[in-house]
Amino acid sequence: MSAGLKVLRAGPCVSVQDRGRPGFLRDGIAEGGAIDRLALEEGRLLVGNDPGLACLEYAGYGGRFEIAGAPLCLALTGASAPLRLDDKPLQPRCSFSARPGQVIELGMPVDGNYSYLSVAGGIDVTPVLGSRSTHVRGGFGGFEGRCLRKGDLLPVGKTEQSSCGMVLHHPDRSLDAPIRILWSAQRDLFGEKELQLFANTAFVVTSEYDRMGVRLRSRAAPVCVQKGLEALSGVIVAGDIQIPGNGQPVVLLADHQPTGGYPRIATIIAADLDMFAQLPPGSEVRFEPVTEQQAVEALAQLSKRIGRLPERLQKHVADPLAPAELLSTNLISGVTTGSDNSGETQ
């Protein structure tokens, strides 16, 4: 029987995601893909996947998943979240093996919004328009074009190699650094005073967030649009910060509508966007205008960091204080090897 993950219980928004679906904006389809792309890459390295394979992304509670068909190698990355294998706690950011019949439970992320469950072989749904990412609003891609439900059986791809028992230590991502922005091409719609106000305001991330966008609020005076508030028909970019009529900003994320919307005051630089999207509700956020050159340098640094991730991958030395974890990491990985061998001879 081929390997799979059976959904025993699913949180409100667990979806299949990969690197996204670039190139279809002219047909009205935004790129989408994993909100936290660094976490996606970390997860795939921990389980030894090739680039581009799909994982599960969730916000809020994740759910309970039963391993079906064959042993699997899995890892949780992104925001830290309680992770259990048959009720035994495991550490995130470590790849571990699990046998058919075992159940993993993904709890609520504690220091961010989005967590990622990667599995060796990847979530093997059929790609749509070149990607396995779920486009929930369009109802396509991923698993039946929707978030997961109890009873779903997710196919997992075949894999020769699996690098179970690896660890990636947490990168130094600071959650309280200012988020860097470039002023928008529509900055003329705002006065210089409003731009200053925006840069000097401490905003708070609200609990109104999803893959399309995040609403912010501020205790200070709202930022006002000086000129007409009518919808503008330009192309939208992930990271764009829109100012609707009430003056409370909305930051657009991966599943943003491709065009239109409210006037945009600024765009979060690409290097900081994923970090921003991980700020939990209640976090204070300040925006720091930077130059185009600084934005490109920051992106180059991030790209270099992602490129060097494999060097930071280490064999996991289990914490002696967590014997349960030691047991599942070491013993089960032996089982995986055995099964892989027998699979090859068939």
């Binding site: 904006l25 002219r26 330009g234 192309v235 491709p258 934005a295 490109v296």
Partner: peptide, 20 residues
């Protein structure tokens, strides 16, 4: 990387690490 025409403009997405 990608061209997106709209009514009055065209949006060109490029890789700033490949070309400044």
């Amino acid at each position: 990387l990608e061209c997106t025409p709209t009514g009055t403009s065209i949006a060109l997405r490029f890789d700033p690490l490949q070309v400044t």
